[in-house]
């Protein structure tokens, strides 16, 4: 029973995390590109986690509870990393 409860709690963790935002990135074609982008976003205090998909050309940002980066800030961070953003509606 304890194990079952622990598993339920574990599986529920992502739901407790903050909002998730998906950003389309132009020009992100290799792991080196993705590394720079990941590093830039992980430095932001609002961001809990960063996931990159080269196949889908997206960066998925998981925010800390109640926090979020503005689109302007995201664009600016991507620009510093050398890339361009577009946002999914």
């Amino acid at each position: 029973m304890k194990k079952l409860m622990a598993m339920i709690v574990f599986l529920s963790l992502p739901a407790w995390a903050g909002e998730v935002e998906t950003v389309n990135v132009k020009g992100m074609v290799c792991s080196f590109c993705a590394q720079g982008i990941t590093k830039k976003f992980k430095e932001q205090p609002e961001v809990a986690d960063v996931a990159v998909s080269l196949e889908n050309k997206v960066v998925k940002l998981t925010y800390k509870d109640g926090q979020k980066l503005s689109h302007q800030k995201i664009e600016s961070l991507l620009k510093e990393a050398g890339y361009e953003a577009s946002f999914t509606k």
């Binding site: 132009k26 020009g27 074609v29 050309k57 050398g82 361009e84």
Partner: peptide, 12 residues
């Protein structure tokens, strides 16, 4: 100096 970068959908 990076003179020019082209960020395309599937290439750079």
């Amino acid at each position: 100096y990076l003179v020019q970068r082209w960020n395309n959908e599937d290439s750079q």
